[in-house]
Amino acid sequence: MVNTILSIPSDITGGTYFGWGSFQIQSGNLIVIIVMLVLFVLALVLPFPGNKRSK
């Protein structure tokens, strides 16, 4: 993140946006949402280790 110390912000850093029509999503938010979905699917699909039985 380049943060130039200026008393006058000539512009605010805009991000990369993806969208269709009025729907616009910022890349950071998109990644967070994808990460949540991926974690959810992986949590359901991946085998859980260590089936140690105590009883």
Binding site: I12, Q26, G28, N29
Partner: peptide
Amino acid sequence: GLADGAHLTGDQWGMMNETGNYPGQS
């Protein structure tokens, strides 16, 4: 105008956006 340029206004889903590519309040 600065906010608009950074996709932060209400009609741009700006409520959940952060400046740059940082995740905001998704």
